[in-house]
Amino acid sequence: MNISGIIRTTHHRAQCIADAVSTDNLSEMRTWAEGNSVITRIASSKVRSVIASMDDYLMNLTVAEDVCEKSIQTDSSGVMR
């Protein structure tokens, strides 16, 4: 049995977020940005693996969103605007 799913979320800086979360992708995951959406496909032969991957991904997504939003608030000298 093969289980797969797609998570699509909308973000102001979708490419930044896709780049950040894709570094933690497992071999059965693929993440990319399309416009203002971040799309991740997860597949596995085990339900528990899909659930664990989704849980980890959603936590990473939250952190990436915070980091990407804060990065646009900081100028090149590191001072918050």
Rank of each mutant, 00 (worst) to 15 (best):
M1E: 12
I3N: 03
G5S: 07
G5Y: 07
G5V: 05
G5M: 10
I7V: 14
R8K: 14
T9S: 10
A14D: 05
A14Q: 06
I17Q: 05
I17L: 02
A18H: 04
A18I: 06
A20W: 06
A20K: 01
A20R: 02
V21Q: 00
S22A: 11
S22R: 11
S27D: 14
S27L: 05
E28W: 04
E28G: 14
E28K: 02
E28S: 10
E28Y: 00
M29I: 02
M29K: 03
R30G: 12
R30H: 11
R30N: 08
T31N: 10
T31K: 04
W32V: 04
A33T: 02
G35L: 07
N36T: 12
N36A: 11
N36M: 13
N36D: 15
S37D: 15
T40D: 05
R41M: 10
A43G: 13
A43Q: 11
S44A: 14
S45V: 13
S45P: 10
S45C: 09
R48W: 12
R48H: 09
S49V: 12
S49R: 15
S49K: 13
V50D: 08
A52V: 12
A52R: 07
S53L: 01
M54G: 14
D56K: 06
D56I: 01
D56C: 02
D56W: 03
Y57H: 10
Y57M: 07
L58D: 08
M59H: 10
M59I: 06
N60S: 08
N60T: 05
L61K: 05
L61T: 04
L61A: 02
L61V: 03
T62S: 14
A64F: 11
E65S: 10
E65I: 03
D66P: 07
D66H: 11
C68V: 01
S71K: 11
Q73W: 05
T74P: 04
T74V: 12
D75M: 02
S76L: 04
S76W: 12
S77P: 00
G78R: 01
M80G: 06
M80R: 11
R81I: 15
R81V: 14
